[in-house]
Every structure is written in structure tokens, then in C-alpha cells.
Design a protein around this nucleic acid. Sequence first.
DNA 1: AGCGATGATCCGTTGTGCTGATGATCGTGA
DNA 2: TCACGATCATCAGCACAACGGATCATCGCT
Lengths: 313, 313
Amino acid sequence: MIVNAYDARMLRDLEIRQLRALLAVAEEGSFAKAAERLGFTQSAISQQIAALERAVGDKVFDRQAGPRKAQLTPVGALLVEHGQAMLAQLQAVDDGLRSLRAGEVGRLVVGSFQSVSVNVLPEVVGRLRTERPGLAVRAVESDDPDDVVRALLADELDLSFVVGVPDHPDIEAWTLLVDPFVLVSPACCPAPSADPSLLDGVPMIGQPSCSCQLTIDESLHRVGVTPDYVFRSNDNSAVQAMVRAGLGSAVMPRLAVDLHDPGVIVTDLDPPLPPRVVALAKRRGRTLIPAADRFLELAQSVCESIDSVVLVA
Amino acid sequence: MIVNAYDARMLRDLEIRQLRALLAVAEEGSFAKAAERLGFTQSAISQQIAALERAVGDKVFDRQAGPRKAQLTPVGALLVEHGQAMLAQLQAVDDGLRSLRAGEVGRLVVGSFQSVSVNVLPEVVGRLRTERPGLAVRAVESDDPDDVVRALLADELDLSFVVGVPDHPDIEAWTLLVDPFVLVSPACCPAPSADPSLLDGVPMIGQPSCSCQLTIDESLHRVGVTPDYVFRSNDNSAVQAMVRAGLGSAVMPRLAVDLHDPGVIVTDLDPPLPPRVVALAKRRGRTLIPAADRFLELAQSVCESIDSVVLVA
DNA sequence: AGCGATGATCCGTTGTGCTGATGATCGTGA
DNA sequence: TCACGATCATCAGCACAACGGATCATCGCT
């Protein structure tokens, strides 16, 4: 009895080309016909079958001289059976490859953050799911930019929406939207000045010291303002509700504001604070599924239309 | 038609060796490790992966220079998935081959004829089925020797029991049993002489003009006897029943006689008629499953034991 | 007996995979 | 910061194998 490891080496020399030759000969019943069909000479097929028999260790055809069909041996029949399965598998690879390349299938894990999750991501994912039902899109929300970069570098995310273009040599990003900061003030009371440098002493609503809020505070500091926060919440609609209630005003990225709220007045700051940039990032050198290109296109398209809406409003 | 799949131009250059390299690299995360595992140099693996990528038309790994693991691209992951299936299929081929070679599985179509079907075949098939449950044995009975030869030549039968060694260059046979003709006479009446030349005028039971009966008649003719048949039946037990009833005597091959019947007397002919030979035949040049060898062995063994039983009786 | 078709075999050329060595790139530790 | 080590790519050279074309042996058929 032969040992397993040795047996594993037996089929080491078996090649797909030989299986194709085997099937062709088995179907045609003739080496010459098979050769013609596969675009070889009869000599080549003869040698391929011989190599197959060498690799397998048994004759696969009973050859009868003269014009009689080549008949499969039992070993040959077994190989035909499995060979068909293997070539079918190969066909499946081909189909899968074509679907993948067409962007019809695949898996996409996308990072996001609050305002994008509300205003951009649902539309993008919705459109993508409609036109590419085979795609599996998963979204992960994180409000920590460092963690997003880490996740991108660790390949936990394929793509991620980010604020600002990350300054990392292994991250590349496409700008989607330039999102200006606006002043949100209660509709009930007289609005404060649109000049951010005059916000000193004005009661403010904001977020806890997340990176976004820190950016705002820093910008205000630059114009000599130390904002006086009378309420902080991570939730943008809570912030806006507090503004609506007249507790104070807020400096928010426009994307985070519900522009249809009649209870607040939204004013462009003048002079403006440096706007935040929303981008889509990926790890440099990481090959994504072709459908990721479509995701980027849709994200750009949705962000453009958001820009238009904002301009109209 | 399935045929189209075989001729698919796509992935024509993909080879099993490349899939093995792909899987090894994907698992080891390193070209060099994979090379060591597969017994190649790193250069060879690098070239194999390059060839794979050329065949597929896409990069399968995101290579990062320096000591970082090679990461699969989506296309690579797809190929790994199907590659595993294909290599599993290859393992299945290997297992199937081992089973086949061990004689554990396979299909066997065996020709037979009446007396063998009663006294030999059941025992052989029974033993074979017990020790090789995976075998599929099918038996076909025919009492026309010419048809048996035709079926063997047409590969409708793998093996066949035959009377006499067929005189055909494409048939080869192994002798199993030398089966003498015996005189079967009623127990009730005085038995006729054991000398076949004295059977003239004795009322005889026989078969219709099948090949076996013709052989008997010809042998009797040679010793100057023209048998007087008072009854003919194709069924051996019907013949024996008629003898038991005293209608006449019969010259039968011993294998066809129920030796345990107390109603008849079985006598060896003296001088004997030329005995018939029972053999197992196959088409020359036809490769049978390995289990066929075991079938032959069992047939020989069973026939030997039948010979012993007869000698004791 | 000759003809045609079959597959095996031989031979020369071409092609291709492998090895060994080298190059380019990056991370890491001194 | 620099050198080292590890990574994979690439190159050159060699050996082997696959292919095509020709020929041969064998058989069925006319």
C-alpha cells in the first residue's frame, strides 16, 4: 500500500490541458478529431494523453488499431467524470470573474460618520443596491478620525468617508464636498451677527470635544473668540433642537443642519471659517472590487446634488 | 451543450500548479514561505503567480514591499475560493482512483447461462458483495453463445461465463470447471447401461435444440446413437422432474443436475462423452476494473468447491 | 492485396519553467 | 540616521518538455 504523501505527488503532474484532451478524445472517440477540435495536431494529443497516463499511472483509453473508436478504461471514465466537474468549476471561476469585473458582485465595507450617515450614505447605498443587487455593502460608523485611518490601514474598511484628507502617505482620498460652517440661531430671537469674530459672549450650543468641535473652537480662537457653551450633545438634532428652543446659537457644518427646520435661521458666516472637506478615502495600494468605483461615482453624484440643494435653499 | 465549456478560450492558460502556488502564498502570506512549502524557489513562485495573473488578467495579490504580508485582491480571493474547490476535486480524483484500484468500487456486468446462474453465480456475487459492498454487479443471462460473444465484443458485457473457450481472436477466457456429462435416470426403474453407445432406443428427456443439446446429440451420434426424445424442455428442473416421473432418462451436464434429488440416479458415463468446459471470458484488449480480478478468483474458488462437492457425492 | 484511417513514435525546433543571482523597496534596530 | 534584513521582481542561463511534421505499424474494408 502506498503512503498518502506519496499519492499526493501522483497527481502532481496532472494538468488541465490534459483533462481537456481527455474529454475531447472521450467525446470524439478519436485522437485526431479531438486534436482538430482543440487546435492541436494528433501528435500533440497523443502525447498529452500519454503524459496524462504517466501522471495518473494507468491507461485511460483502450486503443484499438484501425478505424475503431478509442474506448475509456474504468480509470479513464473516472477521470472524465471528475474532469467534467473540474472544468465546470473553471467555468464557474470565469463567470464569477466576469460578474466581479462588471461590478455586479462583491463585498464593500464602508466607514462613515454622523452627518454623512444621515445625508449621504443612505442615498448612495440605496442607489447602489438598486442597480447592483448582488453587492453586499456594510457600513461602519466612527467619529474618531484616527480610528478610521487605523481601520483603513488594517483593511478593516475598504472605503471610508472622512473629514479632511488624511495626512498619511498610505491613504489616498477623493474630495466629495466642501462643507462650510454656518451659524444656526433661533428663529424666535434676533440673530447674532454673521461675523464669527463677534460671537464672544453669545451663548453657544455645541458638541463635546470631538475632533469636529475642536476644529470649530480652534477657528474661533483664531478670530479671538472663546465660545461659551451652554449645552453640548453629540447628536446634531439635539443641538438643533436646543437652538430652536432659544437656548443659544450654534456653529455647525452645513451638512449637519436640517435646513427644513423653520424654527432656526441658518446664516453663512461672513467672513467664513475654513470649511471642512468631506472626502472618500482608501488605503493606497489596496485593490478594491470594481464596484467600488461605482460607489465613488455615486458618492460624488449625491454630494453634488446636496450642494445644489443647499445653494437653492 | 457541455462541449462549449471545454472549448472556452477563457482561462485557457490557467494551470493547477499556479492554483497551488496561489493557495500557498495566500495561506503563508509570503512568496518565500510558499516556495519553501511547495519545494520551489521564491523566484519560481513569483513567476508562477505572475503567469497566473497573466492568465487571469488581474493582479491577485497586493504586494507591499518590505516585510509585510501579501494580501489577496478581490479577484485573488475569488480564485482562492474556487481553487480550493478544484484542488478538493483533485483530491476526490485521487481518492476515487485509490478506491478503484483497491477494487472497492466499480461496475461489473457479467454474462451467464442457466446452470451457472443456479450453481455458481449466486455464490460468487454473494461473496463479492459481502467483501466489496461498493461494487455494483449486474448479471445478464443468455443461452445463445454467439450472442454472448457479440455482447462481449460490443462491450455490453465486461465478463461472461461461457461454455467452451470461444474460438475468437478477440476473446480470451479462463477455464473454471470441467463439467462431465452424466446419465440421469429414474430411481424407480432399472437404470440403463452407463455406456452411452447403448442408449439407442432408450426414451430420452432433453432440451430443445440449443447449443448444449446439439453438443450432446453430436457426441451420441459419434458413438452411433440417435437419441429418441420423448420430452424437451429448456428448464433443467423440468427435465429432471420428467426423469423422476419415469418418462425417460437424460444426458445432462453434471452442473445442471440437482444431485440431492432422491428420485433420480446419477451415473457417470463410461466411457465418458467429451465434457463441456465452463470458462470466464472477456474481450481481449478491454481493461476491466481491478475488482474483476477478484471476481475471477472467486469464480475459480467457487467452481473448485463445486468440483469437490461433486466428487464427494 | 491494396487502400485508408487509426494512433505511436521519432526528430528537430521552439518555447517555457526553474534556478541562482541581482536589484529595488521598505521596515527595523542600533 | 544609517545599515541590515526581509520582502518580491527581474534577469540570464540552462534544461527539459511540448509541439509540429514525418514516418511507421496495425487494422478494417473494399
